[in-house]
Structure formats: C-alpha cells, structure tokens
Design a protein around this nucleic acid. Sequence first.
DNA 1: CATGGCGCAGTGTGATCACAATTGGCACGC
DNA 2: GCGTGCCAATTGTGATCACACTGCGCCATG
Lengths: 222, 222
Amino acid sequence: MPDTLPRLLPVQSDAPVQAAHDRVYRGLRQQIMHGELAPGHPLTLRGIGKSFGVSMTPAREAVRRLSAEGALSMSGSGRVTTPELSNDRIEELAQIRALLEPELGSRALRRAHLALIDRMDAINEANARAVNRQEPVNYIRTNLEFHRTLYLRAQSPAILGLLETVWLQLGPTMRVLYTRLRRTTPPPHHRHILEALRAGDDAALRLAIRTDVTQGLKHLQV
Amino acid sequence: MPDTLPRLLPVQSDAPVQAAHDRVYRGLRQQIMHGELAPGHPLTLRGIGKSFGVSMTPAREAVRRLSAEGALSMSGSGRVTTPELSNDRIEELAQIRALLEPELGSRALRRAHLALIDRMDAINEANARAVNRQEPVNYIRTNLEFHRTLYLRAQSPAILGLLETVWLQLGPTMRVLYTRLRRTTPPPHHRHILEALRAGDDAALRLAIRTDVTQGLKHLQV
DNA sequence: CATGGCGCAGTGTGATCACAATTGGCACGC
DNA sequence: GCGTGCCAATTGTGATCACACTGCGCCATG
C-alpha cells in the first residue's frame, strides 16, 4: 500500500535523499537517545515501517543496526523493545562514561578556545530552561549536547563514537531517571566544568566531568 | 535456487538452529576479527549469501550489523569492504585498548584463581606455537583468547562488549601488522601479565597489559 | 468461579523480484 | 599512446509474499 509517497521519479534531481533505512535509523536513534521511549517499550517492524512510510525491509535493517549498538534489545523470538537495564548494567555503563569522558575532556582542553566555552554556556542555559519547564526530552538533549560540544574538540572520533553508543543504551533509562527525581535545578557540575575550562586546569576538568557523570546516574539505583 | 538444503521440515525437532542472519553474522565476524580478511577486501551481498547458502536478505542484515560495529565500512553507494584504517584511527583504537584493558584486568585480578592462570598459560603456549609455525590467523586468535580469558573474569559484560568491537575494527589491520613484521618470538609481555597475576600485583598488571597492548600496535605506523 | 486448551491475529524471517545506480572495460577518436 | 565516452554486467535497495512461530484472548469444562 504505497499511499503516502508515489516515489515514481528517480530521485527528483538534486537531493541525494539518504537511503530509507538510514532515515529510519536516524529517527529511531534520536528518539531513543533523547529518552522519548520508556524502557521496555515494544516496537514492531510493521509499525516502524508505517510510521516512517516505508516497508518492513528498511525498518528491519534500522532495528538490526540499533540492536547491534545496544539501543534496542531483541527477545529470543525476535520481538523488539527498548532495553530495561539491570542495576549492574547501569553502573557499568556509568563507569564507562567515567572512564571515557574525562579523557575526551582533557583532549579537548588543549584545543578549547573562548568561542567554544561561550557556546557551551549557551547550551547550558537552554538546559536550565528545560529543567524549569519540566521538559525531560529537552533536558536530556541539551545535556548531551553540552558534553558533545566539548568532546567534538577532542578530535577523537573513535572514542566519541564509542561513547555515543553508551549514551544510546542509557537513553530510555535517563528518561526514567528524570521523571523519578523531578529535578528543579540544573546539573551543578556543569558550572565546574566551564570554570575548569576557562582556567585551563586539566585535573579540575577531569574531576568535574567525572563527578557530573557519576552524580546523575547514582540516583538511579532501584 | 535453494539447492544446498531442502529446508522443508519445520525445524527438524531439537536444534533451535540459530537464525540464518545470525549464522552469517557470526561467520563473518570471526573471519574479520581473526584477520582472515585483508583491509579493503571487497564483499558483495550475493557473494556472502552464496558462500553461506542463504539469500541476500540475511546477508544484508549481517553486513548492516557488522558495519554498525565498525567491522565493515560501506562506501556512499553501499559497497562493502573491510576497513582500511588511517594511522590516526589505529592510534586512537590502541589508546582505547590501553584505557579499557588495564581496567578489565584489574577487575579480573580480584577474582582470578590458579586454574584461570593455568588456562591462560596454556593459551599462551598455543600462541607461541602459532608464532613458530608462522600462522597469522592462529596467532591473532590465541592472542585475543589470552586476553579475553582474563577479562571474562572481570564480570563486566558491557566493557568487554565495547572492547570486542574495538578488536573487531582492528582485525584486518592486525593481519597486516603480523605479516609485515614476521615475528619469531611470542609477545614478551604476556609473561609479565602472568607474573603480575600470580603475585596479585594490581599496578604491575595494569602496566603489563598497557604495555602489551601499546607495544604491538606501535609498529604499525605506515 | 477458576482453569486449561484451542484458535486466530499479529509478528519476525527469508526468498524473490523489479529497479536504479555504480562500476569496469572496451572501443573510438584525438 | 592516451584520454574519453559509452555500454553491459554487477551490485545495493526496497517492496512484497509465503510461512512458521508466538502470544493472547475466548470459550468450554470441571
């Protein structure tokens, strides 16, 4: 039932229009990483296909790719859900963040200039607004963006890539974390991170990042 | 052309026979991680399908999954090859190993008992034999098995999973490394690792692992 | 009213097909 | 001899279909 888009013309000239499976992948990935889906949320290939206007084939490929990254879990019979992480798993993922992120921050420190810090400041303010307005998805999104903006300067794509898969796995859990302790104040350690950056203090930056990362996830113990 | 296997009966009683895409995934993954494929080696979906006796569909899913893990790279037009890593990339992956593996070793140390160390000793001897016989694949396989045997004791599946994707990305490159410097002696630091384990010396173990990991990949600079 | 069995709707899997894009080689012309 | 354009074979993509399995609800029975 190809109702939504005729899709008759080759590609309609200019736009390379990324492949369908890639559109689906990106869409789902963002929903998961930003905590739009609760842990254990069930998904079906036909449902995904319908919501993206494609058939099962691209949906299956996107799901396969995401489950390879740990963003989705598949039951023995192939049923797809967002992962429900055990406490041990959460703690382990937090420890990975605590291992990788200070390293990335340290590498970025040498390359950080004022414009970068200002940009992070702006993101941090957007984060504070999301807290005030009680918007979980915007909170998670700006929080990750704050960290990613810094880490991009580390020029270490492999490490950052690994870290993003960790964030991805934590996405649904982060949503629970947020809704459980309705926080009213923005993450306090972001200020310390910015101060350490301005001061060019490597040790302080590593500590601030490590604390920021560990802090949030500590409250998640069931 | 379903020639090889009739596949008429439901499942032939007992064997759950893992799904076709999973068989293909495992097969390819092992070939890549053990260095059976050189960097830049081209693969085709139809070719993979034929060599595993399946159609393109499971082959595509396996390829998608592997490329999500960085074990295969896909050109813009979808052509699939094993990755040809840049020097920067290799160095970065080595640094990730140097970050994760000492941590895993340290965690395993508390749980390591004599039987484990004996098993690692045996694997190390198999590794030495592979060196003498100039068998690259067996060398890589036993080398990884040596490390994995230790890290499994760390009881940290998330970290180990991340590390395995790093090993996977390095697979084809390891093959080049081996054939370039036809080594005639086994990795010297494995002995140090075993000694530190027997002594229960955490600092020495971390150093030995870090050195072992860094050592090998250092010689790969083009 | 509880419980066990049956059947149907829903779901993932894998094969196949049509199609567009890329690729590689070959011949032609400069 | 070398570059250039074209053609055919190859390749990935996505839709569709048949099929087997799972899970759940419904109904009959104790």
